[in-house]
Amino acid sequence: MANNKEIVKTLKGLLLDANAHVTFAAAVKGLPVKLQGVVPENMPYSIWQLVEHIRITQSDILEFSRDPGYQSPPWPEGYWPKSPAPEDSHAWKKSLDQIDADLEAFIALLEAPGVDLFAPFPHGEGQHLFREAVLIADHTSYHTGEIIALRRLLDAWK
């Protein structure tokens, strides 16, 4: 496809850059450890639970996109951590690092030589790489906004 490079460039911008919104990395940067697991009043989850939900969902989309034999976790319990707080600072860092690594791996799928961004996966129901890239961007952006709202409730946002 002649426009493939431009489409991939645009998708990468959507996945990585702060266009019309704050990036995920900026939303979690500098969050005090003591606030990672706080569930504000009248809210259903903590920032940690949102971060883990983003990690789990992005990993699910990545694995579905590259592995025809992959089985998704059960919905919804497989996509949300039970604990409102990470075990320790290592768990927080590990989750953030995995989000970055999985996003890089997904971008590598988009950049693979000869990839057809719109070819339906043989193992899906019409899904294709372009759709999955937009899904990652949309899902992460939605929950990034929630992270910022929680940070504001916790008086931890500029």
Rank of each mutant, 00 (worst) to 15 (best):
A2G: 15
A2I: 13
K5Q: 10
K5G: 10
V8I: 10
T10L: 14
L15Q: 02
D17Q: 15
A18G: 06
H21Y: 15
V22E: 11
V22N: 11
V22H: 07
T23R: 07
A27D: 06
V28I: 15
V28Y: 00
K29E: 09
G30V: 10
P32V: 09
V33A: 13
L35I: 10
G37H: 02
G37E: 00
V39C: 08
P40Q: 03
E41C: 12
Y45C: 10
I47A: 01
H53F: 06
R55L: 05
R55Y: 01
I56R: 07
T57L: 06
Q58C: 09
S59L: 12
D60Q: 03
F64R: 05
G69V: 12
S72M: 09
S72H: 08
P73L: 05
P73N: 08
P74I: 14
P76W: 03
E77V: 13
Y79I: 06
P81G: 07
S83N: 15
P84M: 03
P84R: 02
D88E: 12
D88V: 10
H90M: 13
H90P: 09
K94Q: 11
L96V: 06
D97M: 07
I99G: 03
L103V: 11
A105H: 01
A105I: 05
F106I: 10
L110H: 02
L110M: 11
A112H: 14
A112P: 05
P113I: 07
D116K: 10
A119D: 10
G124P: 01
V134P: 07
V134D: 13
L135F: 10
A137D: 00
D138K: 13
G145Y: 02
I148W: 05
I148P: 00
I148M: 09
A149C: 15
R151M: 03
K158Y: 11
K158H: 14
